[in-house]
Simulated assay, not measured.
Amino acid sequence: MPLEVDCPQCGTRTPWNSANPSRPFCSERCKLIDLGLWANEQYRVPGEPLDTTPIPPEA
């Protein structure tokens, strides 16, 4: 039985093999939707906030 996974974007069952160049997504469309969400910063990796205090120039 071939391995199938759920598309992370739409949930459609899709094969996980070399015949699916968009894996783990079911299609290029779902892959691009996901990329757009990352580009628009709608996905975030959790972590501590960065210190944005400016570093004074050295004399």
Score class of each variant (00 low, 15 high):
G11H: 13
E28D: 05
K31G: 00
C26S: 06
A39K: 06
D6F: 14
V45Q: 10
E58W: 15
S22G: 04
P54N: 08
Q9C: 03
S27C: 12
N40V: 13
P56R: 10
G47P: 01
V45F: 11
I33G: 01
M1Q: 11
P2E: 10
C30W: 03
C30V: 02
G47S: 03
P8Q: 07
P49G: 02
L35W: 05
D51N: 12
C26V: 13
P8M: 04
R29P: 02
R13M: 11
A19F: 11
C30Q: 01
C30P: 00
N20D: 04
P57R: 13
R44W: 10
P8S: 04
T12N: 10
E48A: 12
R13K: 15
E48S: 11
I33P: 00
I55S: 10
W38F: 05
Y43F: 05
R44Y: 10
T52N: 10
W38D: 00
E28I: 13
A39D: 03
W16I: 05
E58A: 15
P56F: 15
P46R: 07
P8E: 02
G11S: 14
C10K: 05
T52Q: 13
T52M: 12
K31E: 01
S18Q: 07
T14L: 06
P15R: 14
P56W: 15
L35C: 03
N17R: 06
V45S: 08
N17A: 05
W16D: 02
E41T: 11
P57E: 13
D51Q: 09
P2R: 12
A59V: 15
E28L: 12
N20I: 09
P15S: 11
G11T: 12
V5Q: 03
L37Y: 03
P8H: 02
G47D: 01
L32P: 00
V45G: 02
P24D: 05
D51P: 02
R44A: 13
C26F: 09
P54I: 14
I55R: 14
F25H: 02
C26E: 06
C7F: 12
I33V: 10
N17F: 04
K31R: 10
P2D: 08
N40K: 14
P46M: 11
D34P: 00
A39L: 08
A39Q: 07
E58M: 15
S27A: 08
P2G: 06
P2V: 10
T53I: 15
N40S: 14
L50I: 13
P24T: 07
F25E: 01
E58L: 15
L50N: 11
W38G: 00
W16E: 03
C10F: 07
C10W: 05
N40I: 13
C10R: 05
P21H: 05
V5G: 01
V5F: 05
R44K: 09
G36V: 07
F25Y: 07
Q42E: 08
M1F: 12
T14E: 04
Y43W: 04
C26L: 10
M1L: 09
T53N: 12
P46V: 06
C30H: 02
G11Q: 13
N17H: 06
P46W: 08
P57S: 15
P21W: 04
D51A: 11
Q42L: 10
T14S: 07
G47A: 02
E58R: 15
L37M: 06
G36C: 04
D6E: 14
C10L: 09
N40E: 12
S27D: 03
L35E: 04
C7T: 08
F25V: 04
R44Q: 07
N17E: 02
A19S: 12
